[in-house]
Amino acid sequence: MAMADNKQFESAGYRLSEATAGDFIQLLKPRVMSLVVFTAFVGLVAAPGTVNPFIAIVAIACIAVGAGASGALNMWYDAEIDAVMTRTRSRPIPAGRVQPGEALGFGLVLSALSTMTLGVFVNWLSAALLAFTIFFYAVVYTMWLKRLTPQNIVIGGAAGAFPPVIGWAAVTGAVSLESVILFLIIFLWTPPHFWALALFKSDDYARVGIPMMPNVAGEASTRRQIFAYAVVVAVVGVLPWTLGYTSAGYGVVAVGLGAGFVWYSWKVLRMQDGDREMKPAKALFAYSLLYLFAIFAAYMADAVFERAFAMGGA
């Protein structure tokens, strides 16, 4: 009887979902979400003042859900190109496990839930920043910039750079120069990180007509821009120390990490045209992930130690 009902349901133009809980979790882009949550947590911990632990947990949970909502909306809109690219063809929508309408509804509900909860339980500035971040990633980047310009990653990188600012605002109810520097570190880190990926995935992007920098400007120009951005990232990464926000300990770590970023980017710059193995680009992509995690971990550790030292001295 149940099988007959299912057939009648599908013959009426509906298709029963084959999605599992794991498929919906995959829609949230958990690997991207983990980095978002970590940088937001650093902003929350490093911000001056104190926050109730319950409020801190709510804030981080809302930021995580908001980031996941952005991922779901991105996968909904990009389902067609995801089906063509080797890197993304196994995602839940192109693989047929989740229907596009399900992903859209899932993303919209999570967007509203995360921003409203953050506003009611934490503060409305952090909620507004989260709402803007979701809109920027899902609409400005995914629906507009991604298919329009090779600068898509440069401008769109702002979406991934907001989480530490949101974490900061959750504690202070404000945005400061220090939180803006945390924003800039991620914002400027994004182009060399993604262009390194684009170098060894350029065929994928070419097949779907996405104007990534290697496909539009060529590999040589992309390599030069990667190196230029790496130098700027290395300098900006040291700014919290030079401006007196952190101790020399952080400064030493930031200098070392920045030097590594420049070194790996230099190796990419020296690559030969037509190098199909792309080992330097792959190495830079891997190192860039380590760089962002390590520099934010160092920033958080410095803030915690400085606060503990100040309390001990008191």
Rank of each mutant, 00 (worst) to 15 (best):
A301T: 13
L129Q: 03
K267F: 06
L182Q: 10
G209Q: 07
I55G: 09
F38D: 03
M85I: 10
P30T: 15
I186T: 11
Q272S: 06
V51Q: 10
N52C: 13
D273I: 04
V255W: 06
F285H: 14
G160V: 03
G274I: 04
V216A: 06
V253I: 14
A228S: 11
L16M: 15
L108W: 11
A59Y: 03
Q151S: 13
I63V: 13
A297T: 06
L239G: 12
T115M: 09
T142S: 00
T149W: 10
A259P: 02
G249D: 13
A310E: 15
F227M: 08
M271C: 00
L27S: 00
L284K: 08
V253R: 01
P280Y: 02
F293W: 15
L284Q: 10
E10H: 06
A248C: 01
K279D: 04
T246A: 02
F200S: 09
I185G: 01
F305Y: 15
G313T: 09
F9A: 09
D23L: 01
A83W: 04
V231A: 13
Q8F: 03
I93W: 08
Y291T: 00
L27G: 00
F309A: 10
L269T: 03
I134S: 01
R276Q: 03
A61D: 03
P48W: 14
G22D: 08
A303C: 02
Y264N: 11
K29D: 12
T39Y: 02
E102R: 01
F9M: 05
A12H: 12
A281H: 06
W189V: 12
S288M: 12
W195D: 03
A2G: 15
G218A: 01
T149H: 06
G258P: 06
Y141A: 00
L35A: 11
K146H: 01
A198E: 12
I181H: 12
A131C: 05
L239Q: 09
L110D: 06
V32E: 07
E18R: 11
F285E: 07
Y299A: 07
P163I: 01
F132A: 10
F132M: 11
W241E: 05
W195M: 03
G66N: 11
F285K: 15
R89C: 07
